[in-house]
């Protein structure tokens, strides 16, 4: 555990400048619309009540995935820096756990706190300058925590991409996700077409196509479909992240065994 804390300290030191710039960008992105809205509009609540929550979601997901994608680029995949990473006296699982904690847990919590502070400052300014304010970011809103939970699951995919790809980690992970989604969709389409063959008379058209009766999940309720839905949820919430972590672990081990060649 001590080693994990020391690894997190190193990670913070490595990322600190980038994070400061990132914090500045967030502040600017939140401040500018609030000030413009306050200045140009006389009505109170010039920003929608969910504006900050929407911004939080964007920064959490996009920023978090980019940060995660770069986690191994400056050590495991860097020709000049990989030696000290390889010789670091820590277990392989500690090299995996520290990035999970860093971008999967500490980042969203820090972002929530930062959003709370920044929106408090911005709305305080708004009250002082324009005499009105919008709803601040509420870090205790369950919807935000649900988003964090989703981020935590999806972050594992980008962590795997960060370990698997040697360069352009983020772009390649996104491309892999797109390709994966297309393949999965085609397979699902094929299975769907075969299982529900009696409902179709053309490739994907049901009997009432021209009268507006489309094939929908509701019209095709069946135990099989419910099982598929439950299975997909189990896969997403309980299998996806552990699977990605295990593959990432073995990828780290592979790199260590081959001197990152």
């Amino acid at each position: 555990m001590n080693h994990t804390i020391h690894l997190l300290q190193r990670q913070f030191y490595e990322d600190r400048k980038g994070l400061m710039i990132y914090a500045g960008v967030i502040f600017g992105v939140l401040l500018l619309p609030a000030m413009i809205a306050g200045y140009t509009n006389n009505l109170p609540n010039t920003l929608s009540d969910t504006a900050y929550a929407e911004d939080f979601g964007s920064f959490l997901l996009l920023g978090g995935f980019i940060i995660t994608s770069l986690l191994f680029s400056e050590n495991m995949h860097s020709k000049v820096k990989q030696h000290s990473w390889l010789m670091l006296p820590v277990h392989t699982h500690e090299k995996l756990i520290s990035p999970i904690i860093w971008s999967g847990i500490l980042y969203p919590i820090a972002l929530m706190l930062y959003f709370s502070i920044v929106t408090f400052i911005i709305e305080g300014l708004s009250v002082l300058l324009f005499g009105r304010s919008a709803q601040m970011f509420n870090m205790f809103d369950l919807a935000n925590w649900e988003m964090v939970l989703n981020y935590f699951i999806l972050q594992s995919v980008f962590l795997l991409g960060a370990a698997y790809f040697k360069s352009a980690h983020f772009i390649k992970t996104v491309l892999a996700l797109i390709v994966g989604t297309i393949i999965l969709s085609l397979i699902s389409l094929l299975v769907f077409r075969i299982v529900y063959a009696p409902y179709f008379h053309e490739m994907m058209r049901g009997p009432g196509y021209f009268t507006g009766q489309y094939l929908t999940i509701n019209t095709l309720q069946s135990p099989l479909f419910t099982a598929v839905e439950v299975g997909a949820k189990i896969l997403y919430w309980f299998v996806l992240a552990p699977f990605c972590w295990v593959v990432t672990y073995f990828r780290i081990r592979e790199v260590q065994a081959t001197d990152a060649v």
Binding site: H83, M87, P89, T92
Partner: peptide
């Protein structure tokens, strides 16, 4: 096995480093 106990007892100064 790359045991941390072994790695903390080895210091390797490579020809090229950062």
């Amino acid at each position: 096995k790359r045991s941390p106990a072994m790695l903390e007892d080895i210091f390797y100064l490579p020809e090229e480093f950062y």
